[in-house]
Design a protein around this nucleic acid. Structure first.
Lengths: 344, 344
DNA sequence: TAGGGTCTTTGGAACGATCTAACGCTGAGA
DNA sequence: TCTCAGCGTTAGATCGTTCCAAAGACCCTA
């Protein structure tokens, strides 16, 4: 009769450290060392252990490692619901980039659903207490976002996608230089011969929006072009943009730089309404390179965020923070790139 | 001098089962029972333990539970890179729904990055061996997808978003009834008085495409309307669609049902080219309710997939499978809904 | 040959939870 | 009166790994 055991039923044919050790004729600790501190072993022992590991297809159990080391090699990410109408159109690309970068560093992304209407802190608390998450990536950071301060107070490593627009800067972040993007858009338009270049943005006070406006303004100034009367503000939806852009057209603008692809689409509509054609009668540049941009007709010239790089940098900063908790904060501003299509 | 210990530095002020037990004056096992089998305890003991748990803010450690039970309460999800040009425009919505449904059942989604060019099995292997993942959700299931068979052979619970279009059906899946969607689109058009309703789809042989075509065909037949000469095939991009739809227009179609929003947009372009207006001169219905659909002008009537429901059902089926591994396969076909906008 | 110093390797004790078997006690059935 | 199942609870072992301290192997010098 087999010995009575109170161990749970094995799931796969999971190989343990002890099994490897027995087969290789060493102690479990030596196998552990072979993996974590190879330089402690005599080369021939190391070789033998390594071969045995391969032969048996051994993989360390994360649960056991986490229990012992209190580090789960997990990065938490709260996934936001799409606020109606204006879902971040690019979030799955970012998430893939993030996941890939994490994988390469031996980490994984653990998802949790943020309830709609502002992220609460419960989810973060839960992941921290129960899963021993090593750190967090924050996105859709808002003005008055409580998360950074909350995490910082607890000494939990985190990195935000998006800088803080109000109050004191807290912690590490990676962001895209919106001003650089609109500046580049203006450069492109100037090179095409445009002089009366307008900007269609969101109401002042939104950090992202003001940033994008600033790039336009600075480039205009650099070229000695007037900005007065060339700027309009609009809510984020197409309809509002269509209305808001009209004064700019009436004022004789030959090109419009918009703060988002959605706003740019509003320009398209306004132009069609008066029987003119985007890209021919008026140059239009959007922002975000949303999937829509490529399939419009004429296709939309737009500023693309380097999401893959953002993901990589987020992981890099996060790992650095975990390695040296007291290091000065890391802040990375990445340059977006202009995707030139038919509309400009 | 404090007793020497070899425990790792505590991360938070983490409270353990043993600490709760000591404070409540019971054994650790009783606290465990209070959580996992409350009906074993005498009501007054239960009450006392529960109060202590609340007071101390105790949370069981997932790592320890996983180690002991071999169940991580984790669901693996391989996140695909966006294949160029045609990223599934809806995947982040699905992912949020999935994560939320999992959360509510006490599970979490663990992400891993699938390398581009078809998912390899390595990622699945890794999650299984190292993280003791309890199951997987598959999406972007392709013809000849090796994953289902691989997982089934190992007895790993999984559920696919998307049925299997070729070969034998393996395992559980949830899918959206494309035929139902196009059928409903035809119904709507017929009610508007249309008779010459065309279908613009992908080349035959793609499971999803054939499914959507079939709903159109069956509804047409039901109404005694001819389908001959009213069907065109096109590659998935706007440009191809624009070309492919022309014969349908020439043949006098008054309405087009497209297999995707992108194809529908191709119709828009073809119409504009000949100076006609979508929604007035020709009704157009798309499929997917991508973000683009709402912001087009005229806005696009389209068939919306119930992604929240898909997420919920995926989790439900997966949990059922884990509970009873030998139960007959669960297959859920959900009805999409027609979102009526200006184009039809 | 004994002593001292490197290098390698090992035993034992955690980490925090859950499983099994049994504790001492009561009351029902024979 | 004796046996035994059931009650709520507990002791002890165990999951697979890593940390700590110390033991063993080895070589060199005195």
């Amino acid at each position: 009769m087999p010995r009575p055991t109170n161990s749970p039923p094995p799931k796969g044919g999971s190989v343990t450290l002890a099994m490897v050790a027995r087969r290789a004729g060493v102690s479990p600790q030596t196998v552990s060392n072979a993996i974590n501190s190879p330089d402690l072993l005599r080369p021939e022992t190391l070789e033998r252990v390594r071969r045995t590991i391969d032969e048996m297809g051994y993989r360390p159990s994360r649960a056991a490692q986490t229990l012992r080391t209190r580090s789960s090699k997990l990065i938490g990410y709260g996934i936001q619901p799409a606020p109606d109408g204006n879902p971040p159109p690019v979030m799955d690309r970012f998430l893939h980039a993030l996941s890939q970068a994490a994988d390469e560093a031996g980490y994984r992304i653990l998802l949790f659903a943020c309830p709609p209407g502002g992220p609460s802190l419960d989810g973060y608390e839960e992941l921290l207490a129960r899963h021993d998450v090593d750190g967090f990536v924050l996105s859709n950071t808002a003005r008055q976002d409580p998360r950074q301060a909350w995490l910082a107070k607890r000494g939990v490593p985190f990195v935000g996608f998006g800088r803080m627009w109000s109050g004191r800067q807290i912690g590490d972040w990676v962001d895209v230089d919106g001003a650089f993007g609109t500046d580049a858009a203006v450069e492109h338009l100037v090179a095409l011969g445009h002089r009366r270049i307008a900007f269609l943005g969101w109401p002042r006070g939104s950090g992202v929006g003001d940033d994008r406006a600033e790039g336009w303004q600075r480039a205009m100034r650099r070229h000695g072009l007037p900005t007065r009367g060339r700027r309009a503000e609009s809510a984020g939806d197409v309809e509002a943009a269509r209305t808001a852009v009209k004064p700019l057209l009436d004022a004789g603008a030959t090109a419009v730089v918009a703060a988002s692809d959605t706003l740019a689409l509003g320009c398209y509509h306004a132009l069609r309404e008066r029987g003119t054609t985007p890209g021919r009668d008026l140059a239009v540049v959007g922002f975000d390179d949303s999937p829509t941009a490529a399939i419009l007709s004429p296709s939309l010239t737009t500023v693309a965020q380097p999401l893959e790089a953002v993901g990589r940098e987020c992981v890099r900063l996060l790992l650095a923070r975990m390695a040296t908790p007291d290091a000065p904060p890391g802040r990375v501003l990445l340059e977006p790139s202009l995707v030139v299509r038919e509309s400009a």
